[in-house]
Design a protein around this nucleic acid. Sequence first.
DNA 1: CTTGACCTTGCCCCAAGGTCAAGGTTCGAC
DNA 2: GTCGAACCTTGACCTTGGGGCAAGGTCAAG
Lengths: 239, 239
Amino acid sequence: MLTIGQLADYAGVTIKAIRHYHERGLLAEPDRDSSGYRRYTAEHAIKLVKIRTLAHAGVPLARIKDLLDADPDTLAAAIAEIDHNLQDRIARLRRTRDQLAQLRGGDRLFVSAEVADYLDDLRELGVSERQMHLERDGWILMQTASPEDACLWITEKRELMTNPEFCALYLEHDAAYDWSPSDPRLPALADRTRNWFTKHHSRSETHPVRNPTIARLATQSQPGASSPAWDRLAQLMKG
Amino acid sequence: MLTIGQLADYAGVTIKAIRHYHERGLLAEPDRDSSGYRRYTAEHAIKLVKIRTLAHAGVPLARIKDLLDADPDTLAAAIAEIDHNLQDRIARLRRTRDQLAQLRGGDRLFVSAEVADYLDDLRELGVSERQMHLERDGWILMQTASPEDACLWITEKRELMTNPEFCALYLEHDAAYDWSPSDPRLPALADRTRNWFTKHHSRSETHPVRNPTIARLATQSQPGASSPAWDRLAQLMKG
DNA sequence: CTTGACCTTGCCCCAAGGTCAAGGTTCGAC
DNA sequence: GTCGAACCTTGACCTTGGGGCAAGGTCAAG
């Protein structure tokens, strides 16, 4: 006959856990010895190991209670289901491991694969960090507010970026951020941008026009989302 | 700017969880709009995804809070450790899966591998279910009360079971359980048992003698652990 | 005969949210 | 322009699976 401590060591659980199982009605209270100590039998040990195994598998105690005196068929079905569940959790933990690794760098955790690829393209193109940040935040907001639209837009945007002229314009807009609003290059840039869009408008008629300053729309109330030069540029293009 | 529901959908967490993170100081409270609704930025979304990833990895919220504004080196070390932890948990879940499978049959979950092998040997020998049960419970109690002794004993016992004469005696004792206490075969069996032990005593002098009824010692106060015939047998062997 | 290791009950505490209540807001449809 | 559905707000209590501590009683060894 075992004391509660011996039983706990045997099953690899704490004394407190055993008492908890008693309270929950999972494990029958054993007889007490003359001084009131619980004295356990081998049957208790067996049941406790079953309880422990199921508990480690994440089965709620209330369900374990039911399972312990279920008929073999029900038990088999339940075990199969629990095992499925376990496999699932293992798979999820593996995915969490992958995500954890991505926490050390990159933006792939925060945006869709397409947007992440697009951001990589931008970086390779030599876009400024400030602009990268603006783009990333813009896409996060777009994806969150409207994932379907964001999906359409990113497809279109990536197509656009295969055009060297557009890339050049994009880089110039990026550079223009720091210019003075009275910089003489601004009107010319505005002109070229407008021309480019009118020239290519026919091809993408179905979609509303989006330009390199789209990020501004999404990140409007963000700090650093615009500059005097960009404001001037927007004015010039509108007028 | 995102509402709390949009942010929750984006990050794959519940609204309640987000508010919980605010309370715990993990995620800064965003500005409110004119009607008091929280309005989130992309920065919030990024931080929330980090929180979610760490939380899914099982990191306590208090620690996540520290990690979020730790320097990169500390963070890298922490992530390495968390990843280790995760691998560990995956391994443990796999072990739990194995144990879960064993829950469907056999006694391997409840006794050491050696004892389990021994029990398998007994079953193959044709030992009665009653006796199997007695043996299993006996070994569980022995292992629990004194694992080292149980380890020594099982080794010796398995050696003994390689002896055909001993096996025959064991089976006869098993059969004798149901005999009448006045059965004429009992004295002869007691004699043969005693002779066998005196004959083999010299070889295992260092260990105290153990006989096929050892299970009775461990399972004494168990129901069905003895019978009139066995009691008589014990008397005959003692005298 | 004391000391340390065990056992007893009872109570409160923890994380990480979930649930419900009792409202105020916003948006799209009619 | 108003109605209902779907959002949002705070607050207070509930849950799971125990952990910790208090305030004792018990037991075995030196």
